[in-house]
Simulated scan of single mutants.
Amino acid sequence: MADLRKINSLTKYPSIPTHHALDPKNGGLFEEPAAYTGTVIGTEKVDGTNGRIILLPDGEWLIGSREDLLTASGDIVHNPALGIVDALRPVAEKAATIGVGGFGEMLVFYLEVYGSKQLPAWKHYGAGEPAHRLFDVASIPDDMFAWDIDRIASWRQHGGQDFASERVLNELAERIGVDVTPRLFEIDGADLPADIEGMRRFMDGYRSTLVATSGEPGLNEGIVLRAPDRSVISKARFQDYDRTLKRRSQAAKRPEKVSR
């Protein structure tokens, strides 16, 4: 029997850092952007919930949320949390047919599940129809089951996972029959605005979602920036920039204290 706690920890998706450094005290941003050299790919940050499909070398699969495993191939009853299993089971069954050969002991597909009425931002995407988009794939080496759970957690939290490049990500998406999150632009890293105000203006051109399932498209959550080899990745959320700039504006309007 595989150690499910280790599988769960090995395959959890790490937090993506904000493009401008986040102040942990108040959620504002510092004037410290992520450093990109060469091409930067901008993708839509779809506002849903993270799901993962884990392929094992024996052809079995598991489906999980960001934190928990929800079901596995052969299960009669599954955890219905946020509609993740219902949305991803057909994808898992198709993905299992490609195997994990050449990738590692486990191959993990990370998908954003969105649009369902179980999710807060569903109205931005349509009338409540669930949908999904692939945004990352990782392979897990076959020697890591010998590690203890604390070592695994530290490895994951310090960026140890081996993620697919843009080319491989798109190839795998085609093989399992899913779409990736929308690619918005490619730009040289030197041309990205370095300051917070400039970045917020830049983001304005990408305010509406491109993945609405019906009706008029609503707002998206932001932009994910990534190098083609995924060596650097960061997220730019509209709410972070708007909160920071609002605080700056309010601070500028406050009268200065007069010293006596």
Rank of each mutant, 00 (worst) to 15 (best):
Ala2Ser: 13
Asp3Thr: 04
Leu4Tyr: 13
Asn8Ala: 13
Ile16Arg: 02
Pro17Phe: 04
Ala21Tyr: 06
Ala21Met: 13
Leu22Gly: 01
Asp23Val: 07
Pro24Val: 07
Lys25Cys: 08
Gly27Thr: 07
Phe30Val: 06
Glu32Lys: 15
Ala34Lys: 13
Ala34Val: 09
Ala34Tyr: 02
Thr37Tyr: 11
Thr39Asn: 11
Thr39Cys: 11
Val40Arg: 06
Ile41Leu: 14
Thr43Asp: 07
Lys45Leu: 12
Val46Cys: 06
Asp47Arg: 10
Asp47Gln: 12
Gly48Lys: 06
Asn50Ala: 12
Gly51Leu: 04
Gly51Cys: 02
Arg52Phe: 01
Ile53Thr: 01
Ile54Arg: 03
Ile54His: 00
Ile54Gly: 00
Leu56Ala: 03
Pro57Asn: 05
Asp58Ala: 07
Glu60Phe: 07
Leu62Ser: 00
Arg66Asn: 10
Arg66Gln: 11
Leu69Gly: 02
Leu70Gln: 05
Thr71Cys: 12
Gly74Arg: 07
Val77Cys: 02
Val77Ile: 12
His78Cys: 11
Asn79Trp: 01
Asn79Ala: 10
Ala81Phe: 12
Gly83Met: 08
Ala87Thr: 15
Leu88Phe: 02
Leu88Asn: 01
Leu88Met: 05
Arg89Ser: 09
Lys94Thr: 10
Ala96Asp: 04
Thr97Asn: 05
Ile98Tyr: 00
Val100Pro: 00
Gly102Gln: 08
Phe103Lys: 08
Met106Gln: 05
Leu111Phe: 06
Leu111Gln: 09
Val113Asn: 01
Tyr114Phe: 15
Gly115Gln: 09
Gly115Phe: 03
Ser116Trp: 03
Gln118Ile: 08
Lys123Met: 12
Gly128Met: 09
Gly128Phe: 05
Glu129Trp: 09
Leu134Thr: 01
Val137Pro: 01
Ala138Leu: 04
Ala138Lys: 04
Ala138Asp: 03
Ile140Glu: 01
Asp142Ala: 13
Asp142Gln: 12
Ala146Gln: 14
Ala146Asn: 13
Arg156Lys: 15
Arg156Ser: 12
His158Asn: 15
Gly160Arg: 10
Phe163Leu: 08
Phe163His: 09
Ser165Met: 11
Leu169Val: 04
Glu171Trp: 02
Leu172Phe: 00
Leu172Trp: 01
Ala173Val: 04
Arg175Asp: 10
Ile176Gly: 00
Val180His: 00
Arg183Asn: 08
Leu184Glu: 06
Leu184Arg: 04
Asp188Trp: 03
Gly189Leu: 10
Ala190Ser: 13
Ala190Lys: 13
Ala190Tyr: 03
Leu192Ile: 00
Ile196Val: 14
Gly198Asn: 01
Gly198Leu: 04
Arg201Asp: 08
Phe202Ser: 03
Asp204Gln: 15
Asp204Ser: 14
Tyr206Gln: 04
Leu210Phe: 03
Ala212Val: 03
Ala212Gln: 06
Ser214Ala: 14
Glu216Ile: 07
Gly218Asn: 06
Asn220Gly: 08
Glu221Trp: 03
Gly222Ser: 06
Val224Phe: 02
Arg226Tyr: 05
Ala227Ser: 15
Pro228Asn: 06
Asp229Tyr: 08
Arg230Trp: 12
Val232Trp: 08
Ile233Thr: 15
Ile233Met: 14
Ala236Ile: 05
Phe238Tyr: 15
Asp242His: 10
Asp242Tyr: 12
Lys246Glu: 14
Lys246Gly: 06
Lys246Tyr: 10
Arg248Phe: 08
Gln250Glu: 15
Ala251Gly: 12
Ala251Gln: 14
Ala251Val: 11
Ala251Tyr: 10
Arg254Trp: 12
Arg254His: 11
Lys257Trp: 14
